[in-house]
Design a protein around this nucleic acid. Structure first.
Length: 566
DNA sequence: CCCCCCCC
């Protein structure tokens, strides 16, 4: 049996023409990406005259590839005329198809399958010119960003610059250089583009945020998901051939940046752990979000040195009120205090012309400025720490509180299950700032090792060991003077007197406080004693329970857990 | 080819 291929059909198709029901030979195939629904195969096809490897069996590109400069051949439907095992050989002597190999122009449309000996008709004027320059670009021939892949390098996108970084330089073992990057979007999707060295110089000034550009001839590669929160599996790199041209006509079809503003009140309830992006630099989880707010106050610029890198840093704290703004700020939590940080990718826009801005301005100017604001960055007490939030022992453990360098602070509603009366009170140095335990010289004088002095007098101080329980667990804690006074309900002086003169009352006191409930503020830190790591938890304060407040918290957590209004 | 996102 002989096989008739549609000789010349590839040339017609690749020049933008139409060829009805071409007969081709499939010389090979390659799985190119994805799996499941994204599975896609690239075929090497031959019409006997030319062969072409840019043929894809695709689904999602079908409706998107409406452009005139069809460079990828998409096989929508094929009928197998004969299996390869039967054909057994490559038909004809196909040459790899390229623009240059198309000598003759073809008509834009060519219907029924040509007879075997018909010479292919002349091709239409190529729509894609190797000497492409920006003046040739127009909306008529653009590709959706979502269709870009490393397997197809002849494309033009019409994209809006959402975001542009500053120029950054680097120097490492592999060399040095500079770069800037930008995030581009169109109505199909978004992609990160990076311009290195020469291209950095060439395009940096030209690229402006919010403008729309035609861009072509970049290299595409897989995006490293660790470093981007954009929804694209690929990212692009500018090359020496890259062409960028500002779109001067109607750009309204290209969407502008879409913000998904998170109100501050919602940020309060968000945890950076409900991660959108895993931050590999700090081993923690970060959440990237958009917010819009009125800057109510701004602190001076502070200079500090990063502990980890020794790098000199600058920071400036600003207070934003009400709803939320900016783009891609980083949510962090430090001892319960929430804050947003700007990343290098963060775009800060002043008075953006958005409905949300006007709404916020209206709110602020009409009393919002004077509103009582819940400060979600507040740290409780003088110690820093939890912003009023109560955690349980189970949560404290789950959050690994205390594992860090500096220790963590948290509040907890719990009961004293045991207090250790032994050595709970001691004679301390009478000096105001010195609370060192005195050594009894047995001669009416007491020696302070710290002050290197002897005193005839002393003051009583407390150092109380206790167990605290909550419904999820318990913890051995230590309470120093003031916290211990709160727990025992007596002053150190009173307790000292009891210890000296009324041992029974003293013992009774420690019995009485058993199962008393307090709101504790703890500082906890992992410490190592003879190679054994142990959590050292100190009571910073113990206050009686305000049950109205406790109830409100309970109601709030029931709501949060159940989603039901109570 | 970068890939840093820090501090209390």
């Amino acid at each position: 049996m002989s096989y008739k291929l549609s000789e010349g059909a590839l040339e017609v198709i690749m020049n933008g023409g139409h060829y009805d029901k071409p007969v081709m030979q499939i010389l090979g195939n390659k799985k190119i990406q994805g799996s499941g629904a994204n599975e896609r195969f690239r075929l090497l096809v031959s019409d006997g005259k030319h062969s072409l490897s840019f043929a894809m069996l695709a689904t999602q590109l079908n409706d998107k590839l409406k452009t005139g400069e069809l460079r990828v051949m998409i096989l929508l439907e094929i009928t197998i005329l004969a299996p390869g095992s039967e054909v057994g050989k490559k038909l004809g002597n196909p040459q790899t198809w390229s623009e240059d190999s198309a000598q003759a122009p073809a008509p834009a449309t060519m219907t029924p399958a040509p007879k075997a000996n018909t010479r292919p008709p002349p091709a239409v004027k190529p729509t894609f010119n190797p000497q492409l320059d920006s003046s040739m670009l127009s909306s008529q021939m653009t590709h959706p960003i979502a269709s870009l892949s490393p397997y197809q390098n002849k494309w033009v996108i019409k994209a809006r610059v959402m975001n542009k970084s500053g120029i950054r330089t680097w120097s490492n073992a592999r060399g040095e250089g500079k770069l800037f990057s930008m995030d581009l979007c169109d109505d199909s999707g978004e992609i990160r583009a990076t311009a290195f060295k020469n291209e950095c110089d060439k395009f940096y000034d030209m690229i402006e945020v919010d403008k729309v550009y035609y861009i072509s001839r970049c290299i595409l590669k897989a995006a490293n998901k660790q470093f981007t929160s954009l929804k694209n599996d690929y990212e692009m790199t500018f090359t020496a051939d890259t062409v960028v041209s500002e779109c001067m006509e109607d750009a309204s079809t290209v969407p502008s940046v879409k913000f998904d503003f998170v109100p501050i009140s919602e940020i309060a309830n968000k945890s950076p752990d409900s991660l959108l992006v895993r931050n590999t630099f700090t081993k923690g989880h970060i959440m990237i979000l958009d917010m819009i707010g009125v800057c109510k106050s701004a602190a001076d610029v502070q200079e500090l040195t990063a502990k980890s890198t020794g790098k000199l840093l600058k920071k400036r704290e600003v207070t934003l009120v009400d709803s939320s703004g900016g783009a891609g700020a980083r949510l962090t939590e430090f001892n319960g205090s929430k804050s947003l940080s700007c990343l290098s990718s963060t775009m800060v826009r002043l008075n953006p012309d958005l409905p949300e801005t006007h709404r916020l301005r209206g709110w602020y100017d009409n009393g919002g400025a004077d509103c009582d604001i819940v400060n979600i960055s507040a740290r409780s007490g003088a110690y820093g720490g939890v912003s009023g939030e109560w955690v349980t022992f189970a949560e404290a453990e789950a959050r690994q509180l205390g594992a860090g360098e500096r220790g963590d602070y948290y509040s907890l509603l719990g009961a004293l299950t045991f207090t250790f009366s032994d050595n709970a009170v001691y004679k301390a140095c009478p000096q105001e700032q010195c609370n060192k335990k005195l050594l009894d010289q047995e001669n009416g004088l007491y020696r302070c090792e710290k002050c290197n002095r002897e005193y005839p007098n002393y003051k009583y101080r407390l150092l109380l060991g206790a167990n605290v329980s909550d419904p999820t667990g318990d913890q051995r804690v230590t309470a120093f003077n003031e916290a211990a006074e709160s727990m025992l309900g007596k002053t150190a002086a009173e307790i000292g007197q009891m210890f000296e003169y009324d041992k029974a009352a003293y013992s009774q006191l420690f019995e009485e406080v058993k199962f008393k409930t307090f709101v504790f503020k703890f500082r906890t830190k992992m410490e190592t004693y003879s190679d054994e790591a142990r959590l050292k938890t100190t009571v910073m304060s113990a206050t009686p329970v305000d049950y109205k407040d406790a109830n409100a918290r309970l109601v709030k957590s029931i709501k949060a857990l159940s989603g039901v209004e109570v």
